[in-house]
Design a protein around this nucleic acid. Structure first.
Length: 551
RNA sequence: GAUUGCGUAGCUCAGUCGGUAGAGCAGCGGCCUUUUAAGCCGUAGGUCCUGGGUUCAAGUCCCAGCGCAAUCACCA
């Protein structure tokens, strides 16, 4: 490179690596006759499936026959080879060139398998390809499944082809990619460099499909409701705003599907659910991503009790299945039931889950009755809640509860906290026997709130009053996106049957079931700030990052 | 949004009190038909996140910015 222009931030050393890979690509194509961008390959097995084809008996009898043939020379009987043949494709993650024999480890999403390529067993160009292959290239191999002298299951290549030549500099092959930022930004590298990553997303897919099977088996209908909404309702979060050009209409990305799913009940669907993305314009941390997957469930003529049974059965069943998966993978499993590790914790998903009333937990954590507001306020001041005086009684109760009572919940046992004060759950139906509390629960697992459920409010007049009251309390910023959903109220006037409703944070549940510490470890492409100048490999003409955006 | 920590080769990481920029892997050249965390020998590779400042001298100290992480706030 004679000169590096400012628009070309690629460091010289990297161009050297890329240049050598480009030279190899040319050689593979021009000298060895392989298409560096590959073509269709039929009958491919996964690496895991190929490994499973190994048969010790066939391997031993082949080895013996080959040995005998060698000593007997020409007089030997023809060698019988009963080893099963397999064709696989994957990235080269290890490469040991022993001269006339090359050992490679090949990886796909199911795992690794060793391949050895002997100069005497393949065509000359195929051998050269295997010999010169780079870490990260995808190769296709075909041959019998046996093992090596060291006992490693191994495909003895009879054919080698190029799937695709990789031009990028690969990550370190023993440590992989460990910088979390690089793992998220270049997930496509993370997924093959760190097999654990690929496993988590395979588990996530199985969990979500099991949830669907569970819901379908119970007669729930899966529906899809709008993500683009003229009014962002159903939760108390800040929405993302957008705009439809042809209609010249402001729109919001939904913060919850709730109000549409309830309309489905009005329309006559008895049991509905939706698994889909919500978008909330709030902070980001270990358990929050701006877009996240939630399941919402509504059951006509159910209530928060039916939702509790459903939730408990669902999560229990998922945990049992995860335990079975871990057992199948050879991991140690707790003999005492469905116990899964989550970081330092061992979470026990045995039924029944813990159930505790808000009022009871409050009493235990705070040491006074929640309805004794004077005592509660005294406690609030004691723990340093200075703005206590400005808050309504029940809001103080709630804050004191979160501070002193929630920590009492055993993080190792899924726990339903039930019967919240009505005043802190404005859209929930008050209990018939005690209107100060309402029919709502939250489920906590591992110290995280995984989801709430309610006996839904279906009186249009009360709903309208509560909406209106909420709007009155909105500050300036809030009132720019909070609008009364009159059509929803109108739907309640048509008549929504009494119902139970449930929301479960799927990402958080997947975190718990896959022993992932951060929500970003269970979201393939979590939102990151965009990089300014000097962005890694993006080729972006990174404008000085400080410009614009920030306010 | 606040606080703290981190940012050095493609990757994983050292870098002492402020005094010539280091290692392993990947790459490149050579040897080898059974390797297993990376076979053996040799070789090359740098915007020390960016921009200022202090200093004879800054990867190192100071200020500002960018990014990531953790904790808190908001929220689920």
């Amino acid at each position: 490179m004679p000169e590096t222009t400012p628009q070309d931030p690629v460091p010289l050393s990297e161009s050297e690596i890329v240049a050598s890979r480009r030279a190899k690509l040319k050689r593979f194509r021009d000298e060895l006759g392989f298409d560096p961008y590959g073509s269709r390959a039929d009958g491919l097995l996964s690496c895991a499936a190929a490994r499973a084809l190994f048969n010790e008996e066939a391997h031993v009898s082949y080895e013996n026959a080959a040995k005998a043939a060698k000593t007997a020379g020409d007089a030997a009987a023809p060698i019988v080879d009963n080893r099963v043949r397999a064709r696989i494709a994957g990235r080269i993650v290890q490469h040991r060139d022993m001269g006339k024999l090359v050992f490679l480890f090949v990886r796909d999403a199911t795992g690794d398998i060793q391949v050895s390529v002997s100069k005497s067993a393949v065509k000359a160009n195929e051998f050269e390809l295997a010999k010169a292959a780079d870490y990260g290239d995808i190769l296709v191999f075909e041959g019998p499944v046996g093992r090596t002298q060291k006992g490693e299951i191994c495909i003895w290549a009879a054919g080698v082809d190029l799937g695709v030549k990789s031009l990028a500099a690969p990550p370190e092959k023993w440590h992989g990619l460990s910088d979390p930022e690089l793992r998220y930004r270049r997930r496509y590298v993370d997924m093959y460099a760190n097999p654990e990553t690929a496993k988590v997303f395979a588990m996530r897919a199985r969990i979500v499909s099991r949830i669907r099977r569970f819901m379908d088996a119970r007669g729930f209908l899966e529906v899809e409701t709008p993500v683009l909404q003229p009014i962002a309702g159903g939760a108390a979060a800040r929405p993302f705003t957008t705009h439809h050009n042809a209609l010249d209409m402001p729109l919001f990305m939904r913060i919850a599907p709730e109000l549409y799913l309830k309309r489905c009940l009005v329309g006559g669907m008895r049991k509905v659910y939706e698994i889909n993305r919500n978008f909330r314009n709030e902070g980001i941390d270990r358990s929050h991503n701006p877009e996240f997957t939630a399941m919402e469930v509504y059951e006509a003529f159910g209530d928060y009790g039916t939702m509790m049974e459903l939730t408990e059965s669902l999560i229990h069943e998922l945990a049992v299945e995860m335990v079975a998966e871990r057992q199948a993978a050879g991991l140690r499993v707790d003999a005492n039931g469905p116990v899964l590790p989550w970081g330092e914790l061992q979470i026990n998903y045995a039924k029944p889950f813990v159930r505790v009333k808000f009022e009871e937990l409050f009493r235990r954590g705070v040491g006074c009755e929640m309805r004794d507001f004077a005592a509660v306020r005294a406690k609030a001041r004691e723990i340093g809640l200075h703005h206590e005086a400005k808050l309504d009684d029940w809001l103080v109760v709630n804050e004191v509860f979160e501070e002193l009572a929630e920590p009492l919940i055993d993080p190792c046992r899924p726990t339903f906290v039930t019967d919240y004060p009505s005043a802190v759950s404005p859209l929930t139906r008050p209990s018939k026997s005690d209107p100060a509390i309402c029919e709502r629960w939250d489920i906590f697992i591992g110290g995280m709130e995984v989801g709430p459920a309610y006996t839904e409010l279906n009186d249009p007049d009360i709903q309208l009053a509560k909406f209106t009251e909420q709007l009155k309390g909105a500050d300036d910023e809030e009132s720019t996106f909070r609008t009364l959903d009159e059509d929803f109220v109108e739907s309640l006037r048509v008549g929504m049957p009494p119902a139970g409703g449930l929301g479960i944070g799927i990402d958080r549940l997947v975190m718990l079931l896959t022993d992932s510490a951060s929500i970003r470890d269970v979201i393939l492409f979590p939102l990151l700030k965009s990089m300014g100048a000097g962005a890694a490999n993006d080729g972006e003409q990174g404008a000085p990052a400080a410009e614009g955006k920030k306010a």
